[in-house]
Structures are given as structure tokens and as C-alpha cells.
Write a protein that binds this DNA or RNA. Sequence first.
DNA 1: AGCACGCCGACT
DNA 2: GTCGGCGTGCTC
Length: 646
Amino acid sequence: MTARVARVMIDSPVPALDHLLDYAVPSEIADRVRVGCRVRVPLRSGGRIALAYVVELTDSSSFDGALSDIDELVSEVPVLAPEVWRVARSVADRAAGTASDVVRLAVPKRHVRVEKAWREAEPQSGSVTELPLTGYVTDDSITQQGARTALMAIPQLCQTPGGVTIGRWALTVAELASRVLAAGQKIIVAVPDYRDENQVLTALEHVASPDLISRVDATQPAAQRYRGFLDCLHPGPRVIVGNRSAVYAPAADLGAIIVWDDADSLHAEPLAPYVHTRDAALVRQQDSGCALILLSHTRSVEAQRLVEIGWFRACDPERHTQPRIALTDPATDGDAARIPSSAWKAARTALDTGPVLVQVARPGYAPVIACQRCRTGARCRACGGALAITRSGQPPQCSLCGALATDWRCDECDDTRLRLVSRGSERTTEELGRAFPGTTVITSDGDQPVERIPARPALVVSTRGAEPIADGGYSAVLLLDGDRMLAREALTIASDCLRWWSNAAALATRGAPVILVGVAGRLGTAFATWTSAAFAAQELADRRELAFPPAVRTVSVSGDGDAVDAAVARLDPAMYRDVLGPSALPDGGVRSIVRFDYAAGPEIARTLRAAVVENATKRRRGPAAKGGYQRPPTLRLRFDETELVT
DNA sequence: AGCACGCCGACT
DNA sequence: GTCGGCGTGCTC
């Protein structure tokens, strides 16, 4: 019998609409409507038509009242797969957010021409080459259903059969993928950025035919993105590669999820409800029972916690392969120069055979400038932002508003001479160019990243995270500015630095020297001995001591003072550890941070969610009734924020 | 978000 | 007596 009632999810961020509504299915479309289809439905109050997704088809409704008819079937393609809906619902509940906000990350905008072409295309089929997992002592356990593994990547480079140099980790991804594909299942690979994506796609070329590979990446053009998404709806084996939203890709027969470098900040979703790739993957693993692999060069503190509670199994490479790392400590070496003589020497020798990577903390020429006489930081006349010099010989520019300060003058002492306080990549490039005349110097930074460089002698100055891959690897890696990177005020800074250095070290040719300048102590030792798991364990112990995440969970509650107070007051004090704040925010609101144990998560989320719903309906537009300032939402929640100031 | 429903002050 | 102000609540 054909279904008469459709339960739909309204595509709206409004909290009050975050539940399923029942609609009658008109007979004209009854035989074409399927679960997952996009439909348009009337919302009587407002008399408007809303976009919605069919989540369930039944014969009866528990709603006592007349059901409205579905207005229109947008398309027969079931774009909201049942497993994606379940995950969206769970993820939203966990973060006290709206399911449709998560669905927006999961389902790309419809592209009619692409959809038409996809429906007319031949069903795809392709071949898979199964590769053994190399470099690890293991049976099939890593990709077995339900297995959860923190997998330490092998910090080397390798060549594909096509002769392209890629990170060894990408080959591991391809090997794991080949097993899942051979079993007829799908695998999702979520990576931080497109450069990682390209490495994975290169590694996959020799594992699966292109028909079985989908790229789902929010930064792609809309048409390509939609096509990649639609291909995931096909049954059968498939490898799905993308950035953080890839964890929400449709995959009915999901065999495994791999998250590469889970501590990379690009895995932190900036859109509400701000759920991290790792957390979404954990939810999806629970829902589908697939395998979940956190693969990285350094163990994240969060992964370490999962290992320590027994939820994850740690797996290391078969042999202890690590880069050849040396530390130069100014305190003991008596060499306070930014580039100590030992590092100069190593670079000079290495340049005979190939490229040398120089990692620096900041882009630009002089990222920090000050008055030569009184040392007051140079600020923009127009907006007060900090001035910086982006290129040699150019006037200072405001880092905030972009205004040029052509005739700068110190506000304090009227001096006009500038002091260049710090060196950026441009200035390092200039200095190295002088020191090694005739040598090519290449700069790569976040604004203008270079993806690959040839296997020829060159100095490659790069900000952390933007390091190009050198064909065949670097002959030497110099990590400068370690002390400057560490000076940043952030809870995660030590493990971030370890990760940045380790990822750069993994780009070296086997046996090539990697030199970390100016960092000693526990962190330097952890890097030199390649013991990030032990470091993460210590870090986690410290955070337990202080009740900092991820030893505890947090939620920041921000907005109007009284709304924040009311929301926090709803919580039973037995549910949480403590409340920090409220403290004033620059926008006039306040913020409180609640710290609680993992077990209390569902209850806290439920309670705060109720506060958000009430707040969104009850108190609306303030004193400015007509055309005035519409104040930002008066109550905002953010769970497990990584950038909490402490 | 919109829009209707509903309960207190100035008007013909 | 009624018209309409916008606070409150709902949307199948």
C-alpha cells in the first residue's frame, strides 16, 4: 500500500521547527516520493512554502489535526539518506543544535543539470586492486567492523608507481581503502585541506578506478560538488574523499572512516552547531558500526584520551621509523642566533644534493613593528590595528583594515623610525638569499601556498602548515622560530607545535637532518625521540589535574546577561563541575563556561537546548522596534571549543 | 522567521 | 462600545 503520510524535516535553522512534521502525500506524487526526497511544504502560519526532506513514510499520523498536503516533490533523488539523517539528529542533539544545520553541511545545494546528467548516466562499475597494509604488524583488525584505532602514521615519503612523491600516510590510507573496497563497502576519508586531498587521490589512482572515487569537498564548484555527492548514493564499493563535511557523506554500506590529522584546526567546524570532524566521526561510527581510524604523525590529546579509556586501540608502525632529529638549544650551545651555526652548516651541505625546507612562524616581511625609540607597537591611525610590513621596501600596512601608513609617526614620542621586531617568511627569504647567493629561494605561505617543488637544490621558506612537498623529499629541514610559536597563548600550543614540526619532519628524505632551533625541555625531547603518544599522555594528565578539556567537556554559553544566567540556572549543579564566569564580551554580552564530565553530556545538552528554544520564541526584538539594530541571537551555545582562553 | 491570536488604552 | 497596540505562541 502506498504511504499517505510523510514525516518531514523542515530546512530551517529555527529551533522551534527542529522536529518532524506530518504532511499528507497527494496521490499524484504518491508513487514517486521516497524517503530522503526534497519536497516543498506549506507552513500555514506565514502562509509560506518551506523546503523540507522526507524522513519517514507511514500510513498514519499521531498529529491530531488536519494534515496539509505536500506542495511539490522537488526531485525523486533521495538526497537525505536515512543513515545521514540519523547521524545529523544525533550530532545535533549532542551539540544542542538544530538537525537541519547539520543536514546543510551534509547535503549540497541542488544543481538541476548535474542531477539530470547523473540520472541518465550508466550505472558505474569499476575495478579494485587490493593492497596489503604495509609497515604495520596487523591482521585485518584495523578495518574490521566496529574497530576503533589510533594509527600512528609512518613519517616518511614514498613514490607512487606513477613516480609522484606523496606522504607515506597517504599510501596507508590507500591500502586501508583497498581492503574496504574489496569487501564491497564504502570508506570515507576526511582530511584537513585540499593539499592532503590531492595526496590521497594520487595514492588512490592505483587502487581503484576513477568511477569508484568521489571527491566531496565544500570548496569545489557547486556542480562538481553535487556530482561527487550524488555518486555516493550508488550502492557498492566507493572511496569518498573530502574535508571535514565528508564525514556526513551518504554511504549506506559504510565500512570505515579515516580521519587524517585529527588535531588540525581545519577539522573544527566553524558553522553551527560547531561539531568537530572527530566527534561527528565518533557518532557515525556508533550509528553504523563501521571501523574508525584516526591516522596522524602525532597522537592528539583527544585520541590519547580515547585510547586510555579503552575506546580506541593504539597501533604503531612495525618498525620504529623516525626522522633524524637534532635540537639546538641556545642555552647550552651558547649560540643565540636565530639560525645557529650548526644549522647553517647542515643547510649548506644539504643544498649540494637537494632542496632545504626552512619553517618559520609567520608570513610577511616584518609581522611586528614598533617605534625605534620608545618601542611602542606601531598602530594604524585609522582603526588602531597593528601595523606590519608585508614586503621589503613597502610602507607599513594595517593588518586589520589594510590602510597603508605611508608617513608613520609614533603616537607616544613622535619618532618616525620603525623597528622591525620580528621576522616573517619574506625577510627570512631575503636573508637566506643573501647568505646563499645563486641559490633559488622559494616562499610558501597560507596566502600563496606552493604545493610541490622539484628535486633540485633550493631554499624553501614556508610558514607552518604550508610546506610544499619536494619530489624525493628535502635534504634538510630547519625548524626556526620554535620559541616564537610556543609563545602563543593557547591551551593546545605545545601539542600544536609538536604536530607542526612532526608534519614538516615527515617531508624529509630518509636520513636527512631535521633541526629544531631553540627549543629544549620535555617538548623538544618528545619531538627528538618521536614519542608524541607519551607526550599526549602527559599533557592529558596535566589537563586532568586542571580539569581542562579534553579531560572534561565544556560548553560556552554566551549572549545577553540575563539569558545566559537563566540558561545556566536550569542546570542541576550535580550535573557539572563548575561554571567559569560570566565574563564580559566585546559585543556587550557575557559568556559563561560550564565544565562537566562526559557522562553528563546528554543531560546538559538537553537542558541547554530547552533554554535556547525558549529564548528563541519568548524574548524577541528589543527596544529597537522599527528598523533599528537587530541584536544578535541572545543565547549561543558552543560545546568543546578548542580555542578556550584559559 | 513570519503571522495569527488575544487582552488593555484612545477613538468615533 | 470598537480599533489596534504588540507580547506570546505555533507552524503538521
